[in-house]
Nucleic acid binder design. Structure first.
Lengths: 225, 225
DNA sequence: GGGACCCCATGCGTATTCTCATCATCGAAG
DNA sequence: CTTCGATGATGAGAATACGCATGGGGTCCC
């Protein structure tokens, strides 16, 4: 299992990396919150172990930022801040578990394993679903109400990004970045064009629309109401 | 958060301004180093994003000059010069962070948020609340007492600015700047018009009003009492 | 060389915003 | 308490910006 430890205390992080490695996992450590944000976004880890107090970007904000950008990797907070409210904050920020220092390594291992197993659920999550629309990452297929729909690659990625952010508005800028890997505004209507084509396939032939435009901002996909 | 981008490549700067604005910040751009020196000295920005290669005055000298004159505004260098030594130069000149082009917008956003003294939390927090009125930035939705309310984009931004300043009076000038990006008085009643419309939606249908007029000054939103 | 796919330019229809004129309200002064 | 000037509210129409659809041409790959 691939695990990222974000912890600025060198001793702790080495200890944890060593322990997890011995248990057969692939563990890496980072000390800075901002670096971690980048890595965790671009690399498919199975579990994150996050210290709350970090240089660069604190752990809470880190996890919040990850969740906000659609990264669902399970995260365990590992910290000396252990009050009830702190736990609540941690979980509300999108953490999955909370372990207070000092901790027993065996307990950390157990929890990491437990969380890592969950991706079994997430691994099946190659299928994204919004209302009666489903997108199968593995098969690269899309269906709506059992009806198979053919999408072109761009359209597929576009839909994927939208579905991963169900309910949230995805701005044009975000789309350009995630779907096109453009880091500037092309000043043309690429996005609109593809949205239009996508719509024609996933919404037009059906009763209710799932893909909504949010004028002056972007688009959002979500079940009716 | 108030952010100044100093970048001579038009495309990049427009892109960054747009992205940051979408993320709820107040972003402005300048292309010339000398202009930037003047502005950054006289205006209280929260973060500066500085290209290294600039006409007028290069980025390194710009930041050095600012620091020399006592301006402590955090600065992120944004540039294609990315060697280790260059990073060191940047940080020694008084920069706080260093991002190499091409860059992912989401990373820039994360770093900008991290640098802004009020850490990421503010930008990542997607739900603003005042009494029973809530505004969800990510979903672009507004509810009062569980009741969904449809707002037009302008109205939405207007409400957002007001809610971010809960309890404080927001002057007309501030509204013109943050909502309309007007840096002068349009001599018309744009603000009043939109306040009126906003009121009709968020206050009129309910018992108590949250949005209050402060005569001859501006408006303020806050819970009753 | 042919096909699939993707990007761009264009024109159109409409949602949204602005302007302007009028009306209401407020507060100070008489 | 009334009046008057200043300030704010409101509604309707005009102006605008925005998003949508569509076809053509370019490019890449088979």
């Amino acid at each position: 299992m691939r695990i990222l430890i974000i912890e600025d205390d060198r001793r702790t992080s080495e200890y944890v990396v060593k322990g997890l490695s011995e248990a057969g996992h692939l563990a890496e450590a980072l000390a800075d919150g901002r670096d971690a944000l980048v890595h965790a976004t671009h690399t498919p880890y199975d579990v994150l172990v996050v210290d709350r107090m970090l240089p660069g970007l604190d752990g809470l904000s880190l996890v919040r930022a990850l969740r906000a950008s659609g990264v669902q990797t399970p995260a365990i907070f590992l910290t000396s801040i252990g009050g009830v409210d702190d736990r609540v904050d941690g979980l509300e920020a999108g953490g999955d578990d909370y372990l207070v220092k000092p901790f027993a390594f065996s307990e950390l291992l157990a929890r990491v394993n437990a969380l890592g197993r969950r991706p079994a659920v997430q691994a099946e999550k190659t299928v994204l679903r919004v209302a009666d629309l489903e997108l199968d990452m593995a098969r690269r297929t899309v269906k709506r109400g059992g009806q198979k729909i053919d999408l072109q690659p761009r359209e597929f990625t576009l839909l994927e990004v939208l579905m991963r952010n169900e309910g949230r508005v995805v701005t044009r800028t975000m789309l350009l970045e995630r779907v096109w890997d453009f880091h500037f505004d092309p000043k043309t209507s690429v996005v609109e064009t593809h949205i239009s084509r996508l719509r024609a396939k996933i919404d037009k032939p059906f009763e209710v629309a799932l893909l909504h435009t949010v004028r002056s901002t972007g688009y959002s996909i979500h079940a009716p109401l």
